[in-house]
Design a protein around this nucleic acid. Structure first.
Lengths: 225, 225
DNA sequence: CGGGCCTTTGATTCGCCTCAACGGAGGTGG
DNA sequence: CCACCTCCGTTGAGGCGAATCAAAGGCCCG
């Protein structure tokens, strides 16, 4: 098993603010885990009792609504922490986490990391900044959901995914999402999302290579009304 | 001017975790301010450079969308802190704060409070818990916006306001909001909100006393589909 | 080759937005 | 004191966008 103090992935998240001593202690009690595409990491209402450091792969955080649809609230990629919120308030998760591709994660038990949170101000300040960023993004999502059309939201989601998670060498989006996933991000019916996507294709804004989507005209997407 | 270390309002927010010494230091540099109903406390894009402690009154946090409507994201009442997020990331505000009634606030400059955030782990942990709660609520709002009808969202908003902010002695909601405010919380047109409210009235779920709203049948509201 | 699953397209229905007109409350000036 | 204005609340009619229901075409896999 790898050692946290030597792990490069921590450079991308708040764990970088821990001291070598703290990292060594965490390294001793962490567990590593491989998660297959489609597997549920934790469910809504489940007690997580720790935090996951994502070493590789991508997952979606979603919440089931009463009508049976599952709204994607956020995506967590390689380098980020998963389960921060539950770690802090000690409550069970209000979201479900599902792997979008094969993942490798390290699990750090709550009891260990909470010590550092309460004793290392630099670390907790870093976590604070993470959460502040999440909160700001969540506010933006709320406004978009409330005020924009499905067409606009889908265009913005494509741009967001493009800018945040990048592209493969052939220009396709690096994250492979089903049409249903797109619908669940935008908060619409699958058929509606499909319709809008095929309209984008007709308009030359995107092309598809198999199931992959490639953005051809990002400026055009930005101008979508 | 009052002294922070003797102020009772701090019991309701993270400032309670500061030591007497820290409070005395803050007390010296804080400024008190009266804000009239309708007045804008800070605008979107404005640098706040500090945090407000709300001693009395209520305000709304909203964000202007491109179509000119202003989406209410959160309400902040007596006892809570205002501007936490900007305080932490040091960025300008992404929201506008507007007083819903006459308010009394204390402003604490960023330079002072940030010291405590970085040196007092109990304090920063408290702030973390606040933000975790905000984030959870924001996630719920996202799901509601995406998946529920205007009718359901309005019913839930009424329940939320009732449960969170309480009622006056006559049973009316303690916060007086215009129909437009309700529309801006739910993310709909003013006329739509009005229509739904009058339907609720017909169904005996609410009554109105002047501009005040009184919930008559909260269980009925919960069952709204 | 057949059976799923995902994707696509069509047709219909329904919710909500928009525009428009009207009534009442409160404030202002003659 | 009344006429006027403006803001807010209310109601109606029309139209658009999205949900829903239904069905057909590709693709993977046994």
């Amino acid at each position: 098993m790898g050692k946290c103090e030597q792990c490069i992935i921590k450079q991308f998240n708040s764990l970088k603010s821990l001291t070598t001593d703290e990292l060594m202690r965490i390294s001793k009690c962490k567990t590593s885990r491989i998660i297959k595409k489609g597997e549920v990491i934790f469910e809504e209402g489940e007690s997580i009792n720790g935090v996951y450091c994502v070493k590789d792969g991508i997952c979606k955080l979603s919440k089931l609504s009463e009508n049976g649809k599952d709204q994607i609230v956020k995506m967590v990629v390689k380098g980020q922490l998963l389960g921060q919120r539950s770690l802090i308030n000690g409550e069970s998760s209000n979201l479900q986490a599902t792997a979008l591709n094969d993942m490798e994660v390290c699990f750090i038990p709550r009891s260990e990391i909470i010590k550092d949170l309460q004793s290392n101000p630099k670390f907790s300040f870093d976590v604070l900044q993470d959460m502040a960023k999440d909160l700001k993004e969540a506010d933006d999502v709320i406004v978009n959901m409330a005020q924009k059309s499905v067409r606009q939201r889908l265009a913005e989601s494509l741009i967001y995914i493009h800018d945040t998670f990048g592209t493969n060498p052939d220009g396709t989006l690096s994250i492979l999402l089903s049409r249903e996933d797109f619908a669940n991000i935008v908060g619409t019916a699958t058929e509606s999302a499909i319709r809008v996507l095929s309209q984008f294709k007709k308009d030359g804004l995107i092309t598809t290579i198999g199931k992959q989507i490639k953005i051809e005209n990002i400026e055009g997407l930005r101008r979508v009304e």
